[in-house]
């Protein structure tokens, strides 16, 4: 049994991010972290590979910036890490991305389950998982809040999904692609041994040619990045004679703002 997960490095969520004079996005020298949503998918990948008596692999697509996320994944307990990089390709584009990802899954050959985080906390496109599933022709089960069972010999999985209208329990054949929500587990922290193992690990890099993939043209082009217009907020602190007077003053303001 082989479970694969995908992850990336993102700027710390507390970082200030802005567009510099050259029009590039920067967060200064703040460190990157593993995409926070992926802590849950990493944990689930480890748990599934252990309970299925198999192995786990984590893959990042993009520059060496993502090695940090891969090392964190190894430190948590993922067995193997892999980075896919193609010089000159727009690896952020989801068509290019999913073509590379599908190439890696085919080259690995024995994958039963692919686990994604809900979204990237930075670009937040929420489309990578679907496009990979589509390219592989595998079933997609998104927004999974619980795996009821995953039977790797019967090759079936049953999960609970948090959909907009309620909670759905569904089952499907493996292999499948799932994306998981934070309710699914409590991610473990890397321990000392894990961190040491990760520090020493060599991370192989596969190019499109290594995977025998012909990359498609990028579907989109980012034209420019902008700092959002500064919001002119003048804060009015309301303070009346007593709490009722203050509350009435607020109610009055809200009427005048026409938001009620």
């Amino acid at each position: 049994m082989h479970a694969v997960t995908f992850t990336r490095s993102t700027p710390d969520t507390a970082a200030r991010v802005w567009v510099d004079e050259d029009g590039a996005v920067t967060w200064g020298d703040v460190a990157t972290v593993v995409n926070p949503w992926d802590e849950y998918s990493l944990e689930e990948t480890i748990a599934q590979s252990k309970s299925g008596g198999g192995e786990s692999t984590v893959i990042a697509i993009g520059s060496a910036l993502h090695n940090d996320a891969l090392k964190h994944s190894l430190a948590m307990g993922i067995d193997k890490a892999l980075r896919l990089e193609e010089a000159g390709a727009d690896m952020k584009d989801s068509l290019v991305w999913s073509a590379m990802a599908a190439g890696a899954i085919r080259k690995l050959g024995d994958v039963d389950l692919i686990i994604f985080g809900k979204e990237s906390v930075d670009v937040g496109t929420d489309q990578h998982a679907y496009q990979l599933a589509r390219r592989l022709g595998w079933t997609m089960l998104s927004y999974v809040s619980r795996i009821v069972y995953a039977d790797y010999s019967e090759r079936r999985i049953q999960v609970e999904r948090a959909v907009e209208q309620g909670k759905q329990t569904v089952s499907a054949a493996l292999p499948a692609v799932i994306s998981v929500l934070k309710e699914i587990n409590e991610p473990r922290y890397p321990n000392f041994l894990g961190i040491r193992r990760a520090a020493k690990a060599e991370i192989p890099v596969w190019s499109a040619a290594d995977m025998n993939v012909a990359l498609p043209r990028a579907g989109t082009t980012a034209l420019r990045f902008l700092n959002p217009p500064a919001r002119e907020i003048s804060t009015e602190i309301l303070a009346g004679a007593d709490v009722n007077a203050t509350a009435s003053a607020l109610a009055q303001r809200l009427f005048e703002e026409k938001v009620l």
Binding site: P11, T13, R16, V17, W18, V19, V25, V121, D122, V123, G124, R217, A218, G219, T220, T221, A222, L223, R224, F225, L226, N227, P228
Partner: peptide
Amino acid sequence: IIGTRPAYAGKVLMEMTSNS
């Protein structure tokens, strides 16, 4: 077609177009 979307949790906006 040019779409504007927030990125980095709304700290930045990006303008994108498609090539298809």
